[in-house]
């Protein structure tokens, strides 16, 4: 194998209590797209015209036909596809409106799915992930166990993608392991 997992040494899938699982999502193709000042609308138009995708508003993500756009800051998005693809070339035309930088290998992503996911994340993220506040389609970047961690809710199972700098992958894995080690913190949330 020429390509190595960011989580080398960690299991690919581990079952925690109550049918909640965590697994690494890799490889990914990810491009950081930063609109030039004043070109945000033009960029959004170009993305919509070319890929049929609406760039998300602050704190949200969108997806269409396998291409995902994740808000990363004002005028800043990550465009993402699963697997390795020539995404930089695919997006090249957006270069009139934005700066494009390949960050496919810069981050590591864990997918946490199942009924205990929220209870586990209580022990990791200083964010309100209550279903009345944080819903599928939302994304947030925060500090967790001294690392910058981005959390994205995919569905109501619930499923969350957690992403950190690739070099921190082992530490994020460990932090999740510690956060899920004990019995559920709040039985009310584990439904």
């Amino acid at each position: 194998m020429v390509e190595h997992s960011a989580f080398a040494g960690a299991q690919a899938v581990t079952a925690t209590q109550g049918g909640t699982t965590v697994r690494a999502i890799e490889p990914l193709s990810v491009v950081s797209v930063t609109a030039w000042r004043g070109q945000e609308a033009a960029l959004a138009d170009a993305v919509r015209a070319t890929f049929g995708l609406d760039l998300p508003q602050a704190g949200r993500w969108t997806a269409h036909a396998g291409l995902t756009a994740i808000w990363a800051g004002p005028g800043h998005w990550w465009l993402q596809r699963g697997g390795r693809s020539a995404l930089m070339q695919e997006l090249a035309a957006l270069g009139d409106h934005a700066g494009l930088i390949d960050i496919s290998d810069a981050r590591a992503v864990l997918r946490l799915r199942g009924p205990l996911a929220r209870d586990i994340l209580l022990g990791l993220l200083p964010l309100d992930l209550h279903p009345s506040v944080f819903t599928p389609g939302q994304v947030a970047s925060t500090i967790a166990a001294h690392m910058t961690v981005q959390v994205r809710q995919l569905d109501d199972k619930p499923t969350f993608d957690l992403s950190c700098l690739r070099s921190y992958a082992g530490s994020l894995w460990r932090a999740l392991e510690l956060a899920s080690a004990g019995p559920p913190r709040l039985s009310a949330l584990s439904a």
Binding site: A98, G99, I101, D102, I103, D105, A106, L165, R166, S167
Partner: peptide, 15 residues
């Protein structure tokens, strides 16, 4: 220099 058309991100972990 907010009007400059320049974008940058850390790629320390990319490479």
């Amino acid at each position: 220099r907010p009007d400059w058309r320049v974008a940058f991100v850390s790629v320390t972990d990319q490479w």
